[in-house]
Write a protein that binds this DNA or RNA. Structure first.
Lengths: 328, 328
DNA sequence: ATGAAAGCGCTAACAC
DNA sequence: GTGTTAGCGCTTTCAT
């Protein structure tokens, strides 16, 4: 079964190829009657447009690239869902790449995107390097940075939760419950998000005159033994865990040491899936990956559609809320 | 900075566009000297080929589509890594879609893939329906089905672990430890994988004369209360959990009921990430998503490159092994 | 070893 | 409201 093109379809309908093309794309010039006739035939003969020919001709792909640093972040499915939903409604397609937290791979992908003639890019950065984004600017391809906002550093538009504020609020939750012996569990120090959440964490402790030292902070994948030692040598009654991945890897350690279920309070920042799966459920500052997806794609499309100029930088924040699970 | 094409590049080098094209694709007719000159210029002027024009002309995209039923399966990152790695080495690109376990969406995606002129498809089915795959066959686009093998039903090539054997082996592990009061935790019944693992589970119990009833099986996302009641009313000493998702949702319930840490034995089938994160670590039949990715993409490319005919059906199995974590 | 020219399937400017 | 036609950027005969 050979695939048929617009030409063959036109012949079958005794129409001109261009009319068929117009009918299929709802051009106002075409009479509704013909339009329906064409569309019916397109379905009947299972006409599949050659997208490469179309994009080639239109010199634009109607595609938005989504470049993400890793597959593992818990909220990614929701994020993609949100982006995809919005883009689909607006008639755009989505194409997803993963940089695997590798700057060079990120650069490669960006080149690739340019070859794909993408109309815009939503990117979660692999690192704090942003020089290579210049390429996109130069080519006139709009983009927004999500999640790892670096809004205080770089002149690019960003969408994220307010990491610092979220961390502040999370820390405050512990302090208000009078849990002032706090252990902080954070990710890699050269990740912007880590720095921002760390800032909020420290600021809150400072504001409330809670003493703490660098000893009370664990970075990166927590080392089982190191963390265990700290837990044994210090009477922590509160734990701040920066994200879902760290929650999952820290949780068994706490469990083993009978810290949970127990009277230690835990707070985390999460999209809300993992914390309610665990037992007991974990209080958290909740944000929605889906919402982030909607916001960032809507924002990007404003640039894509030239409703907004490239040079108008803006920093958008998705909402977050405290979700409490407390045994009392 | 306007993007330059092969024509402009040719002008800059006082060459014909066709020569530039040939040089860039290492055509043997081109003199090495010219080839290097062209390649150097391509880099200097940051020439990015217009892929749509290329694919359009070649009537093939060099792209392999990967269609997956959900983002959430734990081994997906590894699977994609494996596929991507192999495809990259072979000069192919990868494009990923998610059907979200929705048959209609799966159909849409397949149509989409045909519009993209993909050279082949690796698909994890959303359901047990396979009629719509006929389209691919008709269009001469080779594909392999991964993970949810339905090899005993359908005349298509598949790559998966041997679900029945893995489940059998897992169940045997419990029986050999003399844990014969077994609770089975399974996914959706209309999923092929569930049926296959269920078959292995039941067969093993039968072979070892272990009595059990349908009461001892839980399907779908385990209902917190239902599962809890069963655990309380029956002295289970062994639990078979079909996969990672179910392990994660069952684990807190077991924890709450103080079944773990305890003398109940748990076995699961997993790619090995989650079971060793939990405490205590969970014994499991381990398979590698990465390996599955390599095997399936290598297998598919044999068809794509016409080294193998469409009609030669084959069923490949990735290896799996027992990983034990036992307190004794 | 290189140049000239045709054409992939589609869309849009221009005719009528 | 529909037909005619040119051309997007690239590869690939064919010619030299």
């Amino acid at each position: 079964m050979k695939r048929l093109g617009i030409k063959e379809l036109a012949k079958l309908l005794s129409l001109n190829p261009s009319s068929v093309s117009r009918a299929l794309s709802d051009h106002p010039d075409i009479k509704p009657e013909t339009r329906e006739r064409v569309k019916a035939a397109a379905i009947e003969f299972n006409y599949q447009p050659n997208l490469h020919a179309r994009f080639f001709r239109k010199r634009s792909s109607g595609l938005i690239a989504v470049i993400l640093p890793s597959y593992n972040m818990f909220f990614i499915p929701n994020l993609l869902d949100g982006i995809n939903e919005h883009l689909k409604n607006e008639g755009y397609g989505m194409i997803v790449f993963f940089s695997n937290l590798d700057l060079n791979k990120e650069k490669e992908i960006i080149n690739h995107c340019m070859s794909w003639l993408v109309d815009g890019v939503i990117i979660g950065l692999a690192s704090s390097h942003t020089d290579h984004l210049r390429q996109l600017t130069d080519a006139g391809i709009p983009f927004v940075i999500i999640d790892n906002s670096s809004d205080y550093v770089d002149p690019y538009s960003t969408v994220s939760i307010d990491n610092k504020a979220a961390a502040y609020r999370a820390t405050e939750y512990l302090i208000k419950k009078d849990k002032k012996n706090i252990l902080g569990v954070f990710g890699s120090q050269n990740h912007i998000k880590t720095q921002q959440r760390l800032d909020g964490f420290k600021l809150c402790l400072l504001d409330h005159n809670v003493t703490f030292s660098e000893y009370d902070i664990v970075y990166n994948e927590p080392d089982f033994n190191k963390l265990e030692n700290k837990l044994r040598s210090t009477p922590y009654n509160g734990i701040f865990i920066m994200n879902d991945e760290l929650l999952l890897s820290t949780y068994p350690i706490l469990l083993k040491n009978r810290q949970i279920p127990g009277n230690i309070s835990i707070i985390t920042i999460s999209d809300g899936v993992l914390p309610i799966q665990l037992f007991p459920k974990i209080s958290h500052i909740r944000y929605s990956g889906y919402e982030l997806g909607i916001i960032s794609s809507a924002f990007l499309l404003k640039y894509v559609k030239k409703l907004k100029s490239h040079s108008e930088i803006e920093h958008l924040y998705a909402s977050s809320e405290l979700v409490e699970f407390d045994p009392d």
